[in-house]
Computed example of a mutant assay.
Amino acid sequence: MSLFRRLTGRKAPRGLPPVLDPAQGDEELRRLRALADAGDWAALGPALAAVPDQSEQTWLLNRISDVEGTEEWLAKAVAERPDDSLVLLLSGARHIAWGWEARTGSLAKHVTQDQWQLFGERLEVAEEQLLEVAEREPGWVAPWYFLQLGALGASLGRTVATTRFDAAVRRDPGHLASHRARLQQLCAKWGGSHEEMHAFARTAMLGAPEGGPLGELVALAHLEHWLDLPDGEDHAYLTGPAVRASLREAALRSVLHPAYRPQRDWRATHNAFAMVLSLADERELAHAVFAALGDVVTASPWYYLGGDEAENFRAHRDRCAPR
């Protein structure tokens, strides 16, 4: 019996082509993104408001905020509904995503002055709107998550970032998205260090119940460390015995633990583990994770490899398949 079957009690799906899916295989999210694309707040607003779980609602808002062009109708909706905190929240989230669209994913030295200016202007609008939502709705975790992203982009510094992370986890201690944002803040590329980043990831994982999703932080931390190394050293790092042991522990404590129950954004977590386990030559565990995913590819972290994300997924899935 395969490892996947032993761990999940299910047969692995076979023969499915990998697909990069902005909706991450979630049909409700696909519907909500279509409503956002159509500018239909009359339908989108009540659907979002009806989501009882704040973590799920935050994830939906985040995934909707990258729908291009929504800033146009959101500006009108905010003006027409000045007391609607939810539309203001989505507008703030959209301004962060829109800001990064202006900045692009280029290295800082390749970003033009005009791009930096647009980036800053859009983040300023996001900051104002999200802080207003946080004041209006003190129990909501979502504005504090998006404010973390804004602080990172605007380089507001360690103190502000820490305050916003603490505010988020006071409202939802296991909030995965906020932990991901905090991990980025602690990366060397954002002024942190590998030591801080790894310590945060491991502490968060061990402080959470087994079978929870925070083991993903360990996988992401090793990927960030790998990205920071020159060719040759990167492969040696991920395939070293200590890192492989760390990754095995994280996978078996989280996504491959018998108590694991997928959250709404489980496919992003699985994609992260699938890639890092494959790169680390932990092929049996990687195969179990790939098998759970079927054909759904998330852009992150496969874009780190360059080229086509779905093709990167397919190549690694194939190399980890049993011979």
Rank of each mutant, 00 (worst) to 15 (best):
I96A: 04
A97L: 02
R122H: 13
G92W: 08
W98Y: 15
T112Y: 05
W100F: 15
A97C: 07
R94Q: 12
S91E: 06
I96F: 11
R122M: 05
R122G: 04
L123C: 10
W100Y: 15
V111K: 04
S91D: 12
L118M: 07
T104M: 04
W100Q: 13
G105E: 10
H110Q: 15
T112A: 09
G105W: 01
Q117L: 02
S91H: 15
R103A: 11
G92S: 07
L118E: 14
A93D: 09
R94I: 04
G120W: 01
V111C: 05
R122Q: 11
R122T: 09
E101M: 13
L123Q: 11
L118F: 02
L107I: 00
Q113P: 03
W116D: 09
Q113H: 09
A108V: 01
A102Q: 11
S106M: 08
T112S: 15
L118P: 01
L118Q: 13
R122S: 05
G92R: 05
A102S: 12
E121M: 06
A108T: 00
S91I: 02
E121V: 10
F119W: 04
L123T: 09
G92V: 05
K109C: 09
G92E: 04
L118D: 13
Q113V: 13
G92D: 06
T104P: 02
R94T: 15
H95S: 04
K109M: 13
E101V: 15
W98G: 05
A108I: 00
A97I: 02
W98E: 14
L118K: 10
W100K: 07
G105C: 02
S91T: 11
A102D: 11
G105P: 01
D114C: 07
E121I: 06
S106R: 14
Q113Y: 02
L107H: 09
G105Q: 06
Q113L: 10
T112R: 08
L123A: 03
G105R: 03
G120F: 00
A93R: 03
E121C: 05
D114W: 06
W116V: 08
G92A: 08
L107T: 00
A97K: 03
H95P: 00
R94A: 13
W98A: 11
H95V: 00
Q113N: 08
G105T: 00
S91C: 08
S106E: 12
R94C: 14
A102E: 13
W116E: 09
G99A: 07
T104N: 06
T104S: 15
A97E: 07
G120Y: 01
S106T: 00
R122D: 12
G99W: 01
V111N: 04
G99K: 00
W100C: 08
F119R: 00
W100L: 13
H110F: 14
W116K: 12
K109E: 10
S106C: 02
A102C: 10
G105Y: 03
D114I: 05
E121R: 08
G120M: 00
H110K: 15
D114T: 10
S91G: 04
A97Y: 07
V111A: 06
T112H: 06
Q113M: 04
